[in-house]
Write a protein that binds this DNA or RNA. Structure first.
Lengths: 191, 191
DNA sequence: ACCCGCATGTAAGTCGTTACATGATTCT
DNA sequence: AGAATCATGTAACGACTTACATGCGGGT
């Protein structure tokens, strides 16, 4: 079973979905740190059905094309549960911007500053978006977030990761831009 | 030109290296956020030479097999410089552990706690290793780190990214483990 | 008439991993 | 004699991206 397979099962464990629905949820990286195109999703759904992890039923719609709605099976759910707590094999982190930083000593000062300022902005925007979601969740789901065995908690947990990831990234970009610009890094909090 | 090509050029811009040397430097993720196996490096070197970005000379060694030592060309250096400040196309972040968090509501409490504790430890160990390097660099390279156009600064910059990345990741894992365990997250600093 | 959203697929190509393959020299 | 390090490659496979392909219905 591939990681994509588990990503799909993770979504289907919450609600029944069509391939198209899955595509929508995996387009943005909101909610979970994985993504896939429809060209990868459809064949994977076929494989999951082959293995008995999901089943589908055709739903006829008026004024819309028919769709195949997938449902997770008991076997799929068992496999998913087992996978959740299995330690992931550590995979090498690849980050092109950090790789660029490794050769930044060759670059033009101004152009390099611009690059890291732009990236800082990108991550701060993403952060602001996530913070908005967080506020909403903490208000709307106050009850659900008290128990860690609710899907709401799990969604909140991945969002927390998104927030700390973006904050960290934006902070590093700011430090880079400040350093290259020559102002000396602006200190915000400790490190 | 692939990102791996630029990773190789980035190393060759600092010193002449053989394919084997490159393999060593790209094995661990220390110093830069990219990695590759030798099976990918050798063909890439051939392509780079084909494109005129590098040249090689055979160095005969006593008591060791001969080796091909690669050198970056003027053209290779120009291309590398241009690439450094070109904004990277944003690629989707894939993180299996965060994906697991999305389905953690299905998991056994104890097993899930153990998973995130273990991962917290992994990242804290990596962090400690990086912090050691940082102390060494700040002592040894005090002079060089004042100018951002030194390779030492660039190495230091990627190390800073490594440090903040690992700290962020470890912190999130701790929050996860604490939350699932039921103690309620331990507050360390703000956030 | 044309584009957009819904809906589902296949094909070709790239990037990366694992495995296969060889050969020299040094250390135990 | 066998394992470990140095040194360089190729082959097979899997994951992911981009492009190709089709068709309905609704809005402009």
């Amino acid at each position: 079973m591939t990681t994509l397979g588990y990503a799909i099962l993770g979504l289907l464990s919450r609600e029944d979905l069509s391939g198209y629905d899955l595509k929508q949820r995996m387009a943005g990286r909101v909610g979970y740190f994985w993504s896939a195109r429809h060209s990868q999703i459809y064949p994977e759904l076929a494989r999951l059905e082959d293995g008995g992890y999901v089943t589908h039923s055709v739903v006829e719609q008026r004024e819309r094309p028919d769709k195949k709605v997938y449902e997770i099976t008991a076997r799929g759910l068992d496999d998913l549960k087992e996978w959740v707590t299995r330690p992931p094999v550590p995979r090498p982190t690849r980050d092109e911007l950090t790789l660029k930083a490794y050769s930044v000593w060759l670059a033009d000062r101004e152009e390099a500053t611009r690059l890291f300022r732009e990236e800082e902005l990108r991550h701060e925007e993403q952060l602001a978006h996530y913070e908005g979601l967080r506020t909403w969740m903490e208000g709307e789901w106050r009850e659900d977030l008290t128990s860690t065995n609710s899907p709401e908690f799990a969604s909140y947990a991945t969002l927390r990761r998104g927030i700390s990831y973006e904050r960290e990234y934006a902070g590093w970009c700011r430090w880079m831009a400040d350093s290259i610009e020559g102002r000396g890094p602006t200190r915000v909090g400790k490190e």
